[in-house]
Simulated scan of single mutants.
Amino acid sequence: MGTAIRTQQHPHDDAPDTAEDFARLATLSDGPERRALRDELVRLWLPMAERIAVRFRGRGESLEDLYQVAALGLVKAVDHFDPARGGAFEAYAVPTITGEIKRHFRDHMWTLHVPRRVQDLRNRVRRAVKELGQSSSGPQPTVAEIAAYAHLTEQEVRTGMEALECFSALSLEAEMPGTDGYALGDALGGPDPGFDTVVDREAVKPCLQALPERERTILYLRFFRGMTQSSIAEQLGISQMHVSRLLSGCFAHLREEILAESHGEAHEEVPAEAHAGAHAGVRTH
């Protein structure tokens, strides 16, 4: 049996009369004849699918890719259309193809994940701005004007306008407008080592306060006043070797205390002389 398909006058030149052929397709079992008829139906209705795809051009996707998505939607429409329901194929195919294209934009074109409701608001706001701009040569429409035209609240309009910037992302290497080679990435901060310093100081502060006064003084002079060991020894009236040994002892004691605290171990009892000097404190600035 051949697969010739009749055509008749229609408001759209790309809409052939294929009602009888869809009815015959439904009666055929899978095989060469059915596949040939199916392929011929897809070929004849392809101009309509491409007409629908053209409506979505200028939205960040190439027209060739839109044609492919529309063709996929057309194939699905041909495969799932049931002529026994009594409806025209075009009435079934148009929303099927349109939905396939919209799903493509929603799933593959948005750089940021945006809820479907917000995407719909974006589309309504974009369409309203475009139509208001065509009907007026004045300034850009206000939020209130867009809301009234699109039958939205002003908050919904603001949400849709924010989503206008979410369809694609700007590269961190892109030059910022009005700058001389200044990229967006240049404005991003990096890790601040000062935060680690704050954490370290807070962790060691109780241990420092528990040291004898002389050790606290030596640590203060060495690390907050920047004095050398020989200068400290001269000021305190002790030898430089003694200062070196005291510093090494302080380091070992502080390390042991901090490690014990981090592992949840109990601190060893602080010597009595440490209690006597604990209230003096150690300056940390």
Score class of each variant (00 low, 15 high):
38 R>S: 09
51 R>D: 07
21 D>G: 01
11 P>F: 13
162 E>W: 09
91 A>T: 15
150 A>F: 11
132 L>M: 15
239 S>V: 02
32 P>V: 02
208 L>T: 02
127 R>A: 11
267 H>N: 04
135 S>N: 04
224 F>H: 03
188 L>E: 12
214 R>I: 14
214 R>K: 11
198 V>R: 11
273 E>D: 08
98 T>L: 01
30 D>I: 03
47 P>L: 02
2 G>W: 08
215 E>Y: 02
176 M>Q: 15
89 F>Y: 10
135 S>Q: 12
169 A>E: 13
134 Q>N: 06
135 S>E: 10
242 H>D: 01
203 A>M: 15
100 E>N: 08
163 A>R: 07
206 P>W: 05
69 V>W: 07
233 A>F: 07
97 I>D: 04
96 T>Q: 02
240 Q>A: 09
36 A>I: 05
257 E>F: 10
18 T>N: 10
37 L>A: 05
247 L>D: 03
162 E>G: 07
124 R>L: 10
115 P>W: 11
75 V>C: 08
8 Q>H: 06
122 R>W: 07
77 A>G: 06
138 G>I: 13
85 R>S: 02
232 I>W: 05
64 E>R: 09
95 P>G: 01
247 L>T: 04
1 M>Q: 15
258 I>Y: 08
225 R>G: 00
50 E>I: 02
161 M>L: 15
249 G>H: 04
136 S>H: 09
114 V>R: 10
189 G>Y: 08
6 R>P: 00
228 T>E: 07
71 A>S: 13
120 D>H: 14
29 S>K: 10
260 A>Q: 09
144 A>Y: 04
219 L>Y: 07
39 D>Y: 08
187 A>C: 12
